[in-house]
Write a protein that binds this DNA or RNA. Sequence first.
DNA 1: CAAATCAGTTTTGATTCGATACTATTGGCC
DNA 2: GGCCAATAGTATCGAATCAAAACTGATTTG
Lengths: 181, 181
Amino acid sequence: MGDTNANAVSQWVERLSALHRSLMRKFATEEGLQFVHVEILQYLSICNRYSDTTQAISDYLGQTKGSISQSLGLLEEKGLIKRVQDKIDKRVFHLSLLSKGASVTKRLLESIHLDGSEKLEPQLKNLLTSIQKKNGLKGFGTCLSCRFNQSPGKNSFVCGLTKEKLSVDEVKKICKEHEAS
Amino acid sequence: MGDTNANAVSQWVERLSALHRSLMRKFATEEGLQFVHVEILQYLSICNRYSDTTQAISDYLGQTKGSISQSLGLLEEKGLIKRVQDKIDKRVFHLSLLSKGASVTKRLLESIHLDGSEKLEPQLKNLLTSIQKKNGLKGFGTCLSCRFNQSPGKNSFVCGLTKEKLSVDEVKKICKEHEAS
DNA sequence: CAAATCAGTTTTGATTCGATACTATTGGCC
DNA sequence: GGCCAATAGTATCGAATCAAAACTGATTTG
C-alpha cells in the first residue's frame, strides 16, 4: 500500500478505465446513441428506487443536472425510458428503463465481456470504496455494505433511513444515500 | 474464472470505470477543459513516439479521427500541445505535451488519488490484456510485454519492428503497434 | 505511373456541455 | 397560517463535441 505502488495501480486503473470508455463509445455509436446515453441507461439498470432521479444521475456521472435533463428528454422521446412523478413529493420524477432501453443495457453487458479471476472481486470492491473515501464522495454503494441496512430476518431487509422494506433484488442495487458500514 | 463470476467482475469494473469518469469530468471542469481534452492529454503523457498521432489517439479513445482532429486544434490553440511534422513521412504529425499540458496531467494524477494493494497490480494487468484480447483489440501495451521487443544487453532495448534503439524510459510507454508476447 | 491506401483536415447538422435563470414544490421557522 | 430558503427539475444560451462524409496531400502498391 506504499506510495510508490499507488502510482503503479493508478496507471492500470487509468488504462482499464480508458479501455472501458473506448468500448462503451464504440457500442454507443453502433446503437446510434451518444456516450452519455449509454452511461445513463447503464446507471438506471443498477440503481434503486431512491436513486432513479435526474439529480442522482447528475451526482453519479459528475455532470450538471441541466445536461442530464436534456439527455433524458431525448431518451424519453426515443422510447428508451419513462418518467413517473412521485406520489408524495411532486417535485421528483422517477426514471426507469422501458423494454427498449433494458435491451440496450443487456447488449452492452454482452458486448463488453469482462473476465477476471475470482480473487479480483473483493479487491476491486476495496479499491472502489477506497477511491470514493479518498475523494470525499458519498453514496452509491449497495445496501449490503450500507450502515443503514437492517436485516431483521433471513432474506428480509429494512432501510434504516426510509424505514421501508426492501426485496432481495433491491438490496443489490446502488443507492445515492449509501454510507459505508 | 467461471461465467457466473465474470458477471460480478463486470459489475465492479463498470462501477470503477464510472467513478473514474466522474472524477475525470470534475477535474476537467475545474481546469476549464472538456472531458475529451483531458483524455487526450493523459494519453499523450503515456504513449511512445510511434503512437503520438491523430490516428493513434482516435484508435485508443474509440472516437473518429475527425472529432479528435478538431479537439487537437483547440488544444494547440490553447498552448497545451504542439505538433511537429515527421521528417520522413510528411503525412504524419507528432503530437507532444507542452509544459502547460504536462502540468495538467500532473495535476490529474494528483487529483485522482488511487490506492490499492500490491497484489492488485498483476491482476489488473491480466484483466486488461484479457479484455483487449476478448474484444479483438490490438495494440496499446508497453514494450515490456511486446513480442517485438528485444533486449541485447542489460538496460538496452531494440524494437524488432522499427529496428530502433529504445531508452529505458521509452519501453515503459504504450505503443499502438504492441502485440502480446 | 496510375490506383489504392493512408494521415490528417474540413464541413455539416444534431447534440452535448456548463452556466445561468427560471418554475414549482417542499420544508422550516417565526 | 405565511414567509423564505432549499430542493427537483426544466429552459435557454453560446461554445464545443460528435459521427459521417467529403476532401487534401503524401505514400505505397501493383
